[in-house]
């Protein structure tokens, strides 16, 4: 709790808003792929574009799928 009080959260939020606007996103709620209509490939989001082989492949259960 102490750390939160010391930090200039107003400045942080302003920067975060700018960061999202740069990518045409305005929702400060940090939405993820569950609300992204386009993600209909039934795959897990790719959390990097590198060689780590750590991206899960196709989603298996529609109930909890990405759509």
């Amino acid at each position: 709790m102490k750390n939160e009080k010391k930090f200039n959260t107003k400045h942080l939020l302003e920067l975060y808003k700018l960061y999202l606007i740069q990518a045409n996103q305005e929702n400060l709620n940090m939405n993820n792929y569950h609300s992204n209509e386009h993600d209909n490939s039934n795959t897990h989001p790719d959390y990097h574009n590198n060689s780590h082989d750590n991206t899960p492949g196709k989603m298996i259960l529609k109930k909890y799928g990405t759509n």
Binding site: M30, N31, Y33, N36, H38, D39, D46, Y47, H48
Partner: peptide
């Protein structure tokens, strides 16, 4: 012009 994957989608904070 939009992506749900973190690589292209403002991963910080998400």
């Amino acid at each position: 012009e939009h992506s749900g994957v973190c690589t292209f989608n403002s991963c910080l904070g998400k």
